[in-house]
Design a protein around this nucleic acid. Structure first.
Length: 426
RNA sequence: GGAGGGAUGGCAGAGCGGCCGAAUGCGAGGCUCUUGAAAAGCCUUGGGAGGCGACUCCCCGGGGGUUCGAAUCCCUCUCCCUCCGCCA
């Protein structure tokens, strides 16, 4: 949620900033009038309750003084007032619900430095690292699924038998490569991020309050017989850890990471870029998150970006850093860098990490706050997240980069200790 | 899965339906005293909503109910503890 005051107290500026994200002015006007209606309802019930409280205290006093008849008549009078209050409170609940429902539809404010634009087309490539188009000339480069199926390390057909489309079975060297990548990712980041294992199933409240379960977001799988959801990303678990808490400023920035399996329904994505390891219902990922103070969040974003880049750099994979334009930002983000790895067999750039600054948007809904060391005042933290290592696509990139004329796969040096070999063969 | 007990402020721990947003202790912060420190004494010390403000309202695990009035009574959910059963 954004701060509703930005709409009631600073409407024009807020409307201007949100217009860059494609938000209709009309929605904001609805939020504003709902906010004002809510405020009126609060004032009305508070006043009615104040009178009732005062009257009740009066009854108590009369009873103590033994003025039984006066207490009785006062009591009757207050019963009527109580009914009135009930009506006002029902109105207030209604006003609060419609206000919250509308507010939930407003996305986070885009950062002012984010470029203008309405779609992917307008994203800005910040820089390209390790990419040399000449290096691929004259080589026969196949997509990872061809290389992997030929080696027998990936079995799409049997995966479909087990679970349907958009699932994979990995075998032998392919399975070891996956395990090695996860281990490598955790080791690479453990100096700066607290390694955590979180439950892979979370309560409705947790997934809701991390912003991963809205009316428009039907990505998560729900368990049939329990009020639990499968993690769409470990971020849900890591952020959920601190919901409703007030952290000490001295504990910030609080950086943590978790390896988890991630499950996504990918509704609406059927048939799009789904070949091989590009898009799966179930994948493995090391996620990095950080909670920090508002004044340090921009530098924390750069630090997180650097950490996520280190994964690709250490693996020797070419990648580029793309800053998303205002219109392409996700709902909750104020600023996002996408990291895209180059897949030479596909001749495409694959998104492997979205490094996002959420400012206080997620913290407000989740109630994640901190206490200032000096003043003792309580404020919302800023939250950030990014993928430290997203296996399906990094796995694919390693396979496509390492493919050799004899069909084997040469592994990046950094992975050799983790996979236990420098070449994956049949 | 079955039986029982519990949930109160940073922590511990009181709390006959009205005098309870809440005793007391510890912790933390400030002040006095002191060359400094300790000790002692005094004071302060939860969160949220509305309001320029005075101030008002809400919160004793969550939700609902009874009542003029609920931390206190009733229902329900969640979590924790003990015992039994099952189990990697």
């Amino acid at each position: 949620m954004i701060d509703p005051r930005s709409i009631t107290d600073d409407f024009e500026e807020t409307a201007r900033r949100l217009a860059r994200k494609g938000v209709e002015r009309e929605l904001l006007e609805q939020v504003r009038s709902a906010a004002l209606a809510r405020r009126e309802a609060i004032v009305a019930t508070d006043e009615a309750r104040r009178q009732l409280n005062a009257g009740s205290a009066e009854v108590g006093r009369l009873v103590r003084e033994g003025q039984v008849e006066r207490a009785g008549s006062k009591r009757a009078e207050l019963a009527a007032a109580g009914e009135q209050l009930g009506i006002l409170e029902a109105e207030r609940r209604g006003a609060e619900e419609s206000f919250e429902e509308l507010l939930a539809r407003v996305p986070n404010l885009p950062d002012e430095v984010v470029p203008d634009g309405s779609s992917e087309e307008d994203n800005r490539v910040v820089r390209v690292e390790g990419y040399d188009p000449g290096a691929y000339e004259g080589r026969e480069l196949r997509p990872h699924w061809e290389v992997a199926e030929a080696l027998g390390i990936m079995d799409t057909e049997r995966a479909a038998k087990l679970s349907g489309t958009m699932f994979e079975v990995l075998r032998k060297g392919g399975a070891r490569l996956l395990r090695g990548l996860v281990d490598f990712g955790l080791d690479l980041h453990r100096a700066r991020y607290e390694e955590t294992v979180v439950p892979h199933m979370v309560r409705t409240e947790v997934i809701e309050r991390t912003g991963h379960l809205t009316k428009f977001d039907t990505q998560a799988y729900r368990l049939r017989d329990d009020e639990l959801w499968l993690l769409p990303t470990a971020e849900v678990g890591l952020m959920g850890l601190y919901q409703g808490e007030i952290l000490a400023e001295a504990d910030l920035p609080k950086r943590s990471m978790a390896y988890s399996v991630c499950w996504r329904r990918e509704a609406g994505a059927a048939g799009r870029d789904t070949r091989g390891m590009q898009r799966l219902h179930e994948f493995h990922k090391v996620e990095l998150v950080s909670l920090c103070t508002p004044e340090t969040s921009q530098e924390e974003l750069q630090a997180l970006l650097g950490d996520c880049e280190a994964t690709l750099r250490t693996l020797g994979l070419p990648y580029r850093v793309v800053e998303l334009c205002a219109g392409d930002l996700t709902f909750a983000a104020s600023r996002v860098y996408d990291l895209e790895v180059y897949a030479p067999g596909l001749d495409r750039w694959l998104e492997v990490s979205s490094v996002s600054l959420i400012t206080d948007f997620q913290a407000r809904r989740g109630g994640i706050r901190f206490r200032r060391a000096g003043s003792g005042s309580v404020e919302l933290v800023h939250s950030l997240n990014g993928s430290g290592l997203a296996t399906p696509r990094v796995w694919a990139a390693v396979v496509e980069h390492g493919q050799q004329p004899d069909g084997s796969i040469r592994l990046p040096e950094a992975l050799v200790p983790y996979v236990g070999t420098d070449v994956i063969t049949a």
